[in-house]
Amino acid sequence: MTSDRLRLLLPVLSLAVLLGAVFYLQPRAMSYFGLNLLFNLAIPVALATIAQMMIIMVNDIDLSVGTFVSFCACVTATFVHDTPLLGYAILAGAILAYAALGALIQLRGLPAIVVTLGMSFVWGGLAVLILPSPGGASPEWLRTLMTLKTPLVPIAVIAPLVIAFAVHLLIRRSWIGVILQGVGGNERAMERAGWSVVRLRATSYGLAGLFGVLAGMCLVGLTTAADANIALRYTLLSIAGVILGGGEFVGGRISPFGAVIGALTLTLAASFLSFLRLSPDWQIGAQGAILILVLAVRLLFVRKEATA
């Protein structure tokens, strides 16, 4: 447990340092309105990161998160807005498709990287078919939900924490979560213990699909429109977020709170750069640099953990 706490400490610290730097550069950001702007897109990024975490939990990597979220955003901005029943049916079908992919990957022993890379074309193609040019509209209730004026702290900060807590309960405190982490830890042992790994992998992929759908819906609620390329960056952001948050690629070692905080850190990194008045050319590079920096610091932590 202490080791887990230590793991969480680093993402929390990096977020705090970054936030402190932003406040130092621009004290006016330290307000309700400022925070809302800073973390504007944090909710969908956090949800997409959780989706990625579900996949990394079972030792796979999902390279289609970005196009899948874009696809869900396109469905939300068109079908869910115009014909809700059909829209929700499509989104439910997408979750089932994700679960089926998980089953297929397990049944045939496929490399998840390649399968999801191929699927990223499929989702991208579907998104282009639905919305060839940017457009659509957000369902009314979604718009209201995303622009909700919560007291004291803006929803852009509250919602990711609530999401992290809910996922924490699901993954770290429920039996199904423990078993799913077990698949990442030792797949063969789970199989010997009588669990169907096919079903378990399908479950974790299905969960990833669910959070991907939620990310797409929230994104439309925020931007009020969608296009086929709206969330392509999310693939890389989500992987980086999970790792930044203390997750490991193998062994089912993941942390929902860490992942969400990692996502917040990366969202903030972009704003930080604009406060530094650096040219936007360097924004992507800065995200890379922050990622490298945090991983370097983590190395020191891990060393300490090993010697302690």
Binding site: M119, S120, F121, V122, G125, P132
Partner: peptide
């Protein structure tokens, strides 16, 4: 769109 889907 169709081309992307089939490629995938």
């Amino acid at each position: 769109g169709i081309r992307l889907i089939l490629t995938g």
